[in-house]
Nucleic acid binder design. Structure first.
Length: 484
RNA sequence: GGCGCCGUAGCCAAGUGGUAAGGCCGCAGACUGCAAAUCUGCCAUUCAUCGGUUCGAUUCCGAUCGGCGCCUCCA
C-alpha cells in the first residue's frame, strides 16, 4: 500500500518536516509511557491521546507502525510509596515484591483508563516494563564506559556530558547560558560536572536493588528508554515522542546515552505534545484542580467526550481544560452521532423552505475527504480536519432536507464517517436495541398522537425522557429515538 | 542571566502577504400539535497595542503590554 506523506513538527529543528522513515512504509515509534505509582491524570492522558492520534493517522496513511511504549516500574516515587510498610530488615526479595504489588495495581488501572478513552492495549506493539530489561541497561552502560562516556563513583555510574559535543541539541541549551540550579542530590556530590547525570544508582538501605558490575543498585531514570528503545525498535528509530516537559532533561539524556553508545543518530523525528491547564491554571493537587479520568467519570462525563475535547485542539498548543469545554465537546459529538443515525436510516420526504443550492453529494464527500486527510497529514491539524467534516455534515443535512439522499450517497457518507471515526473514535455505529417496555411506551404514544391526545402523548414522552430515551418525530410519521 | 512559545468573536479554535474556516453558546425565522432533529438568516470592517516594510499585513520586521514554558522531578 502506498503511504500518504506526513509532515510533523520536529523538536530537533523546531520546524515542520516531512516524515522520512528508515524502512519505507514502516514507522518505528517510541513513546514515553507512565510511571506507575498512581492513577494517570488528565494531563498524562492528553499526551497519550496525542500519541494515539499520531499512531492512528500514520496507520490510516498506510504505514505499518511499530509502537513501543515503556512502563516505568522502578523509580524514586515508586520506591517511596511501596517500601513504607516494610520493616527495616526486609530482604531484597520482599522489597521487590512490595514494589511489584504497587506497580501491577497501577499498571492495570492505567490500561483501564486507556481503554476508556479508546486507546486499546493491542494497538501497541511493545509494552516493556523497565524491570524486565536490567541486562540491556547494564550492557548499555558498559558500552558507554568503553566509549569513555561513563564513569563510576562509589557504586554509582554517571554520564560524562562533556564527552558528547552535541549534548543540548534537542533542548537547544548551551553551557554558557545555563542557569545552573543549586539542587544537587546529596549522593551525587562527587560527579565530575554538575551537568552529569546518573546512569546507575548505588544501593541505599531500604530500597530494592539489582546486582551489577558496579555493585548492587538500580537504574537511573533515563537509561531504560534508551535500552528498551534500542532493543525493541533498533538503533535507528523514526519517531520518539512525549510531553514537552520531557525534552529536558529526559530526552536530551536519552540522546546522549543512545548516540554515545552507537556513535550515530538515534531518533530522526522528535515530537512533543503540549501541556494542559485546568480552568486557566496549572493543574496541581494544592489548587484542587487535579483530575484523573476516574474523577471525570464520577462527575458524569464520558471519557470519549474528554477524548474529543482533547483531540479537537492542536497537540502543540496549550489546552485549557474546562467543564464548559467538555460540554461543547459533548454537543459537537452529538451532532455527528445524530448525523450518522440519519445516514443509517432512510431519507425523509423532501421539505420546503430556503436553501442554498443543490450539491453533488458524492463529489462533496470526496472534497471533504481530501481536506480531512490533508489537514491531518499537515502536523496533525485536527481542528481543520474536523472543520472539513462539519462542513460536509451541514451540506448533506441541507440536501437531505430537500432532496432525500440516495442509499448509495448515504453509504458513501457512512464510509467517510467510519474513516474519520477510525481517528477520533467518537461516532461509531451503534446497535439500536430497546427493551420491550420502552417499545410499548413508544407505541402507546404513537396511538395517543393518532388520537390527538397531546397531553398523554407528551406525558409518555416525558416518561421516556426520564428513562434516558429521547424521541424525534420524523416527517414520515415514524418516531426515532436516541439515548440521552 | 540564556533559550523559546502564546495573545483571532461570549467560549473553543484554524488560517493566509490580497482582505477572517469550523465547533459550542445565543438571537430571529422555517418545519412540528408542542418538542426534538434539521434547515435559513444573524453573531470579529477585524485578528493585544504602537510603529516599520509593502500597492496591500491578522499574516513579515521592530518595540510595548499581557500570559506562559524550559534551563531542577514532572505528560
Amino acid at each position: 500500500m502506498a503511504t500518504r506523506p506526513i509532515r510533523l513538527f520536529n523538536t530537533l529543528s523546531r520546524t515542520i518536516e516531512p516524515l522520512e522513515t528508515v524502512t519505507p512504509g514502516v514507522v518505528t515509534l517510541y513513546t514515553c509511557g507512565p510511571t506507575v505509582y498512581n492513577y494517570a491524570h488528565i494531563g498524562n492522558l492528553r499526551t497519550f491521546l496525542f500519541q494515539d492520534l499520531l499512531k492512528r493517522t500514520l496507520r490510516a496513511s498506510g504505514f505499518e507502525v511499530r509502537h513501543c511504549m515503556n512502563i516505568t516500574d522502578v523509580e524514586d516515587k515508586i520506591i517511596r510509596d511501596s517500601q513504607g510498610e516494610l520493616p527495616l530488615e526486609a530482604d531484597n526479595t520482599a522489597r521487590h515484591a512490595a514494589m511489584k504489588a504497587l506497580t501491577e495495581r497501577y499498571t492495570q488501572a492505567f490500561f483501564e483508563d486507556l481503554e476508556a478513552v479508546a486507546i486499546p492495549q493491542n494497538s501497541f506493539t511493545f509494552l516493556p516494563r523497565a524491570t524486565q530489561y536490567l541486562p540491556q541497561m547494564i550492557q548499555l552502560i558498559e558500552r558507554l564506559e568503553k566509549n569513555g562516556l561513563a564513569y563510576a563513583r562509589e557504586g554509582s555510574v554517571y554520564y560524562r556530558v562533556a564527552g558528547l559535543p552535541h549534548y543540548g541539541c534537542l533542548a537547544h541549551l548551551d553551557r554558557e547560558g545555563m542557569k545552573l540550579g543549586a539542587s544537587v542530590d546529596a549522593d551525587e556530590y562527587d560527579r565530575e560536572s554538575i551537568s552529569d547525570f546518573v546512569l546507575w544508582k548505588a544501593h541505599k538501605p531500604g530500597e530494592p536493588y539489582w546486582e551489577s558490575p558496579w555493585g548492587p543498585g538500580r537504574p537511573g531514570w533515563h537509561i531504560e528508554c534508551s535500552a528498551m528503545g534500542m532493543e525493541l525498535l533498533g538503533e535507528r528509530v523514526d519517531i520518539h515522542s512525549g510531553g514537552v516537559d520531557l525534552i529536558f532533561p529526559h530526552h536530551e539524556n536519552e540522546i546522549a546515552q543512545s548516540e554515545g553508545a552507537t556513535g550515530h543518530t538515534w531518533v530522526t523525528h522528535w515530537v512533543h505534545g503540549e501541556f494542559l491547564l485546568v480552568e486557566g491554571e496549572k493543574m496541581s493537587k494544592s489548587l484542587g484542580n487535579f483530575y484523573t479520568l476516574r474523577d471525570l467519570r464520577t462527575m458524569g462525563h464520558d471519557p470519549i467526550t474528554f477524548r474529543y475535547a482533547i483531540q479537537s485542539n492542536h497537540y502543540r498548543k496549550l489546552y485549557n481544560f474546562s467543564v464548559e469545554g467538555l460540554k461543547a465537546a459533548k454537543n459537537s459529538l452529538e451532532r455527528l452521532r445524530t448525523f450518522r443515525r440519519r445516514m443509517e436510516g432512510e431519507g425523509e420526504s423532501a421539505g420546503q423552505g430556503p436553501w442554498k443550492e443543490a450539491i453533488d453529494p458524492l463529489a462533496r464527500i470526496e472534497t471533504a475527504r481530501e481536506a480531512f486527510w490533508n489537514a491531518l497529514a499537515d502536523d496533525l491539524n485536527t481542528p481543520e480536519a474536523l472543520a472539513a467534516l462539519f462542513t460536509l455534515v451541514t451540506d448533506l443535512n441541507a440536501q437531505d432536507d430537500r432532496i432525500a439522499l440516495t442509499r448509495a450517497e448515504r453509504d458513501a457518507a457512512l464510509a467517510f464517517l467510519d474513516e474519520t471515526n477510525a481517528i477520533f473514535a467518537g461516532w461509531p455505529h451503534e446497535e439500536a436495541s430497546l427493551d420491550a417496555d420502552v417499545e410499548a411506551l413508544i407505541e402507546a404514544r404513537r396511538a395517543a398522537k393518532a388520537a390527538k391526545n397531546w397531553a398523554q402523548s407528551d406525558q409518555i414522552r416525558d416518561q421516556l425522557k426520564a428513562m434516558g430515551i429521547l424521541l424525534e418525530d420524523r416527517k414520515d410519521g415514524t418516531t426515532a429515538w436516541k439515548r440521552a
